[in-house]
């Protein structure tokens, strides 16, 4: 995502991107910059989540349409005029294609997990920014430390990829080992 896309997203969310803060000697202005960066990251996250849900709405709609189409075709199959083997074969092929579309729609919905993972990666960046902000405040003895509780962050989030079930085998092994030792004890 380039800056123009981020700006467009922020504009759509009603949050204008902050103008760059000039760096003047003797004036850090750091607290404001960090606070602004954090609120911009939050805005991007909120907009991305909202837009992802819009994509999900569209996929839901496609899924419903495919369901309706399948029901209609199943009804057509029962008609006396549709008993010809060639017609039945064609209808089966249409139903098979409809199922394939449905599977692809579900697959696309499942891929939307990337949004949550990206959100958490951004949350990790916010966490580091808040640490820098608080460090500067403590160092200079001016300004206020970060307030407001945020969600805890996965310590492995930076290594989380987008391939589903990438960590399944490892996690299952830990669960199995735990349950085995629990049963023994």
């Amino acid at each position: 995502m380039d800056q123009s896309e981020i700006d467009a997203l922020l504009k759509a969310a009603g949050t204008q991107p902050a103008p760059p803060v000039p760096s003047t000697p003797g004036s850090l202005g750091g607290h404001e910059v960090e606070g602004r960066v954090i609120s911009e990251i939050d805005a991007v996250t909120a907009v991305t989540e909202r837009e992802t849900n819009k994509v999900m709405d569209q996929l839901d709609l496609i899924s419903q349409l495919v369901n309706r189409q399948q029901a209609l075709i199943t009804e057509v199959m029962k008609q006396s005029g549709a008993q010809d083997p060639a017609v039945q074969e064609a209808i089966h092929q249409i139903l098979s294609a409809a199922k394939e579309i449905q599977d692809k729609v579900f697959g696309a919905m499942d891929l939307m997990q990337f949004q949550d993972i990206t959100r958490q990666k951004l949350e990790r960046i916010v966490f580091h920014l808040r640490q820098i902000h608080d460090y500067i405040v403590e160092l200079l003895g001016t300004g206020l430390k970060s307030e407001g509780e945020r969600a805890s962050i996965s310590r492995t989030i930076q290594n989380t990829g987008t391939t589903p079930d990438e960590k399944k085998a490892d996690a299952d092994a830990v669960v199995e080992e735990f349950l085995r030792s629990k049963n023994k004890g």
Binding site: F106, Q113, F114, T160, P164, D165, E166, K167, A171, V175
Partner: peptide, 15 residues
Amino acid sequence: LQSGVNNYVVKPFTP
């Protein structure tokens, strides 16, 4: 698991 979770899935997952 020690806290009481019965099983565990790591995101992203398959259906």
